[in-house]
Computed example of a mutant assay.
Amino acid sequence: MASKKPIYPGATTGRGAVLAVLLSQDDQSGAEPLQGRVTLAAIVKSLKRKYHWPVETNSFPANGPDGRATWATVYSLPEKVVTAALKGEGGQWMADRALARRARVAALDKPAPRAGMRPEWRPPEEPDDA
């Protein structure tokens, strides 16, 4: 069965953030933390099933912070998939994602207006009791 062409998720979504880390081949431990209640495993599952990315999973036993035995998982994309993606539309997608992130950070850096006040707001005039 022929594999489907991978689809790129939205640039500023959690799926987009995870795919960007996988395509960049950077260490995943340095990636920004995910926001919300969605786990990394759920995002990887959707990248595999809905977006058709061949994400490889490697799980191994490890010790948890409290000393109990647990499992650690490493996710990666095959080198040929990364190379093909970056030569194709993936390079542009990564550039668009970086631009969208810069715009989002710039918007967050703007000072917020004071609550309930607009720049053109003036206090109400008091009536004359003459």
Results as ranks from 00 to 15, higher is better:
R15N: 10
R15T: 01
G16M: 05
G16V: 00
G16E: 04
A17C: 10
A17D: 10
A17L: 15
V18R: 02
V18M: 06
L19W: 01
L19P: 00
L19D: 04
L19F: 00
A20E: 08
A20F: 05
V21Y: 00
V21M: 13
V21G: 09
L22M: 07
L22S: 04
L22Y: 01
L23N: 04
L23Y: 06
L23K: 01
L23Q: 02
Q25H: 11
Q25W: 05
Q25N: 13
D26R: 15
D26T: 12
D26S: 15
D27M: 06
Q28S: 15
Q28W: 04
Q28V: 03
S29W: 04
S29P: 02
S29Y: 09
S29C: 10
G30F: 06
G30L: 09
G30C: 05
A31I: 01
A31Q: 12
E32I: 02
E32H: 11
E32N: 11
P33N: 12
P33E: 14
L34I: 09
L34F: 09
L34E: 06
Q35Y: 10
Q35F: 07
Q35E: 13
Q35W: 08
G36P: 07
G36V: 06
G36C: 08
G36T: 01
R37Y: 05
R37M: 03
R37S: 14
R37Q: 12
V38Y: 02
V38N: 04
V38G: 00
T39S: 15
L40Y: 02
L40Q: 06
L40E: 01
L40C: 03
A41T: 07
A41F: 06
A41N: 12
A41W: 03
I43P: 01
I43F: 04
I43N: 03
I43D: 01
I43Y: 07
V44T: 05
K45P: 01
S46V: 10
S46R: 14
S46I: 00
L47F: 02
L47Y: 05
L47R: 00
K48I: 14
K48G: 13
R49I: 09
R49M: 06
R49N: 12
K50E: 15
K50V: 14
K50P: 01
K50F: 11
Y51E: 12
Y51L: 11
Y51T: 02
Y51R: 09
H52P: 04
H52Y: 13
W53P: 02
W53M: 03
P54M: 07
P54F: 08
P54S: 10
V55M: 08
V55F: 07
E56W: 02
E56S: 10
E56I: 08
T57P: 00
N58I: 09
N58M: 12
S59T: 15
S59Y: 08
S59E: 15
S59Q: 15
S59H: 08
S59K: 14
S59M: 10
S59I: 05
F60E: 11
F60T: 09
F60A: 10
